[in-house]
Amino acid sequence: MKIDAKGYMDYVAKVAQKLADNRDYVTELDSVTGDGDHWVNMDLGFRKLLEQRSTLEALSLGELFKKIGMLVMSTVGGSSGVLYGSAYIKASQAIGQRESLDVPLLAEVLGAMLDAIMARGGAKPGFKTMIDPLYQGLEAMKAALAVGKGDRAALDALRAGSIAGMEATKAMEAVKGRATYRTDKGVGHLDPGAVTMCYQLQVLADCFSS
């Protein structure tokens, strides 16, 4: 189970499609607790990556992650842009000269992304953000790998953990971002950033499995 730069761009295309399919759902979630622009900006970012697909596919894996980071940062803007941008740039350092992602390296990459997002946003697990599905998915994945369960089980753990993390945001009180302006701190509503993060982790696990 390995993914190279070309395989990663196939993943990007699938995320773009997943976002396109869920436009109204994500925007509705964001309209309740935020300002309704999350889907628009994420969609813009992934479409921008696809526009440059042929150039991006030709890069080394590490360079690809760095370039994705810079493109996402400048195209998506807002909080999501700088957080995903920082995540990809940090991940490119974790990848170094390696030319393909296997499952253990994927865990390293996701760990680097999590660190970058927490450092840049000053947020932690439990703050009702994109961090929650990533954190829970990664923890589950690492636990599976640690006991030698194998790639497929680790990916299943990533899937299940990220869904659990995403769903857990519903009961959380927001600490960062626009949901904090609600008197209920968004309790009872899923965080849209957690939902789109979860989409990406699901598609990623699927890409490895297929």
């Binding site: 998506v76 700088v82 941008g85």
Partner: peptide
């Protein structure tokens, strides 16, 4: 200027 209702990115 950022996108509508979104902060401009750091490079801008």
């Amino acid at each position: 200027a950022g996108n509508v209702f979104a902060s401009p990115s750091a490079d801008r």
